[in-house]
């Protein structure tokens, strides 16, 4: 797997981010002139790319030598990472925790370094006027704030607008492989937040193989109370429903907890105005009293299926 991806785009294996506009495309897929002239969203990654461009200057001999050998150094680094991973897996010193743990903290916001693992986007990317920021609050927790604006950009195509979202960055293993979270031992998603009375949405993006599944998101809503008190929220994974490109799908299934790539929080409640959400931590727990596996019907509406297709032909776990 690794080899194939590295062959296809060498910059991938060497950790060069070509696309600064989004979290997913590693290739130069988003590198086009902004059709609307809105300058896109000033995400962190974008600014990095901009900085790299402006810093270009004629190179001396020493720089050239260093740059020539950098790939080798990077590759060595990756090899080291891979060895580390393998070694950690072999040691298995967390076996007891794996067997008996009741909960796990995914993100705890206690300082600026915890915010680096998140990407913030808004409809500015497609010409809208919403703004979103993720900063540190006075209490050293995450403070997701900004202004949503449902004014639709006049490009003749867009029909709805006005969202703000924060999304965890894709975790990477050695050789830039995407690595997934395995949340199978748990069935509840926990949050401690302090909001402003607006309703938000949690999105889970699992790893998938086929291109038609790349936009799959499992979503559920949470409602903030508002006011000065903190609020503990528990959302069972069974409640998450499948959407793709913002549309709820007919054929529903439970979220594949074994391969979650990213988790995000989205706001899009058709209201114009500022929002504030303070987030303390996000975690997962196992609640044995929650028996539900999936909250929605899963009847199949298509043509009758063949008999021996219950097992998936190709599972991402296999590679």
């Amino acid at each position: 797997m690794m080899t194939i991806r590295a062959l296809r785009s060498p910059q991938l294996a060497l950790g060069v981010r070509v696309c600064g506009r989004c979290w997913r495309h590693d290739g130069p897929r988003h590198q086009r002139a902004d059709p609307l002239g809105t300058d896109g969203a000033r995400t962190e990654a974008k600014q990095e790319v901009d900085g790299a461009e402006t810093a270009a200057r004629p190179k001396g001999f020493r720089t050239k030598v260093v740059e020539f050998f950098r790939p080798a150094g990077n590759a060595l680094n990756e090899v080291r990472k891979l060895a580390n991973e393998t070694f950690t897996q072999m040691k298995r010193d967390d076996l007891e925790q794996l067997m008996f743990e009741d909960s796990r903290i995914l993100w705890k916001f206690r300082g600026p370094e915890d915010l680096d693992q998140w990407l913030v986007t808004s409809d500015k990317e497609m010409g809208g006027k919403s703004e979103a920021y993720l900063t540190l609050s006075e209490n050293n927790t995450a403070f997701f704030h900004g202004v949503t604006n449902i004014e639709v950009p006049k490009d003749g195509v867009t029909r709805y607008s006005g969202y703000a979202a924060m999304r965890s960055k894709q975790r990477k293993a050695a050789f830039n492989r995407r690595s997934q979270m395995d949340l199978t031992p748990f069935n509840i998603l926990n949050l401690r937040v302090r909001g402003d009375g607006r309703s938000y949405m949690i999105t889970l993006a699992p790893e998938s193989y086929f291109s038609s599944q790349w936009d799959d998101l499992w979503c559920y809503f949470f409602f903030t109370r508002g006011g000065p008190h903190w609020q503990d929220i528990q959302i069972p994974f069974s409640k998450f429903f499948l959407t793709s490109k913002g549309r709820v799908q007919d054929a529903q299934s439970a979220v594949p907890k074994d391969r979650i790539n990213t988790i995000g929080i989205t706001l899009g409640d058709k209201i114009n105005g500022p929002f504030e959400l303070e987030i303390d931590f996000m975690g997962v727990t196992m609640d044995l009293t929650h028996k539900e596996e999936f909250a929605y019907e899963q009847y199949y509406q298509g043509p009758r299926r063949k008999r021996f297709t219950k097992k998936p032909l190709l599972s991402t776990k296999d590679w």
Binding site: E101, D102, R104, G227, W230, V284, T285
Partner: peptide, 20 residues
């Protein structure tokens, strides 16, 4: 604490609220 860290997340240090 090791097996159930979510139950032991320390609260944000904030004083009491008396009225709104």
């Amino acid at each position: 604490r090791w097996l159930d860290p979510v139950a032991f997340v320390e609260n944000v240090p904030e004083g009491p609220v008396f009225a709104i």
